[in-house]
Simulated scan of single mutants.
Amino acid sequence: QPQLQIAIDRGAAARYGINVQDIQDTIEAATKGRAVTEIFEQERRFNLVVKIGQPGEPAARLRDVAVSAPNGERIPMSQLAEFSRTDGLAEIFRENNVRRLSIKWSVRERDMGSLVNEAMQKVEATVKLPPGYRMVWSGRFEDQQRALSRLYVIVPLVVFIIFVLLFGAFNSMGDALLIMLNLPFALIGGTLALYFWQSNFNISAAVGYIAVFGVSVLNGTVLVASIRQAFADGLPLREAIVRGCEIRFRPIIVSAIVAVIGFLPAALSQGIGSEIQKPLARVVIGGLISSTALTLLALPAVYALFAARRREPEPALPPAATS
């Protein structure tokens, strides 16, 4: 943007005995005006601004503006300052009273984390900032890093709380750990869904993992509870496992199908905001498919294996004494 720069000649001002502040005040009054008093209208207050009005081109007007010397002489501004036209910044942005220049770019067909890390390495190798300057990678990348740092605390805390609740519900550490096996079951499906859909991992995908963790743990809880109930009713272990799977097969399958159908529009959407919806929906769909299948197939087999090991053989009775 074109700018008019005015450099005050301090030597000339000293020769005429004019204070630099008086020259600056004159320039201010000639350009934007100077507030000299205030006007009150009921409860409202307005500044009364005085501005020098002269016809002609602005730069020529400023050169002709006269400044009063102590001896009463009127000295034109052209003898007290140098005028030059240059190109300058249209806007100056500041953050915490520090000038800031933003360079914006968008990410396409890449995950943000790896792309920004690659860009940081290349920039550090080629760009050398002068003293007093610093570079900050902000925007969505900064928000992502901040959210990931929170997830590093939230996810282990959620897993621990789930384990505590399961242990309190079943009073058995083995059953609680067995149900927690559904978490890697869901993790496998969500990761494969991102891979086959060629989606990048982001914060919405991490939220999808947390959501599918809850559903998979719920399915494992109801299945194990049904098996334990059948075993408590007097059925042998193998029949109790079969009976529990028969009872919970339909509810688990139907709930998974309903959730998958509900998330399909978001997983296949292409409109505005789809870059946030698609990773979450695809993780949930893949996690539900894998966790449902492995809950009904692998979890009963693992339960039978651990339950058989926990059942201790009854001690043999000593032979009765004969006379």
Rank of each mutant, 00 (worst) to 15 (best):
R250E: 13
E246F: 11
F263H: 07
I227T: 04
L280H: 03
L268D: 02
A232F: 02
A266L: 15
S255V: 14
V260A: 09
L235A: 06
F231V: 01
L268Q: 01
A230K: 05
P236V: 01
E246M: 15
F263S: 03
C245T: 12
L280N: 04
Q229F: 08
E275D: 15
Q229W: 12
P251S: 15
G271W: 09
A240V: 00
C245L: 11
Q270T: 12
A225E: 06
R250T: 15
L223F: 12
F249D: 11
V258F: 12
E239L: 04
E239F: 03
D233G: 13
I285C: 06
V224Y: 03
V284T: 09
I241C: 03
L268C: 06
L280G: 03
I252N: 10
I272V: 12
G273Y: 13
R248M: 10
R248L: 15
K278L: 03
A225H: 12
P251C: 15
A230W: 00
R250A: 15
I276Q: 08
F263Y: 10
A225N: 13
I253F: 11
V224F: 09
V254R: 06
A267W: 04
V242P: 00
G273V: 11
I285F: 08
R228V: 09
F231I: 00
P251N: 13
E239N: 10
A259F: 13
L264E: 14
F231H: 04
S274G: 01
Q277C: 05
R228H: 04
P236A: 02
I252L: 10
I253W: 13
G234E: 06
R228A: 02
A266E: 11
V283Y: 08
R248W: 11
Q229C: 01
R248P: 08
D233F: 00
C245R: 10
S269F: 03
A266W: 11
K278C: 02
R248H: 14
A267H: 07
V284M: 14
L280K: 08
I261Q: 10
V242M: 11
F231Y: 08
I257Y: 09
A240M: 05
R248I: 10
A232K: 13
E275P: 08
L223P: 05
A266S: 06
F249E: 11
I252C: 09
L268T: 04
R238I: 02
V258H: 07
R238D: 03
P236I: 00
F231A: 01
L223S: 09
Q229D: 10
V242H: 13
V254C: 08
P279L: 03
P251Y: 12
P265S: 12
F231Q: 07
G273K: 12
I285P: 03
I272N: 07
A240Y: 02
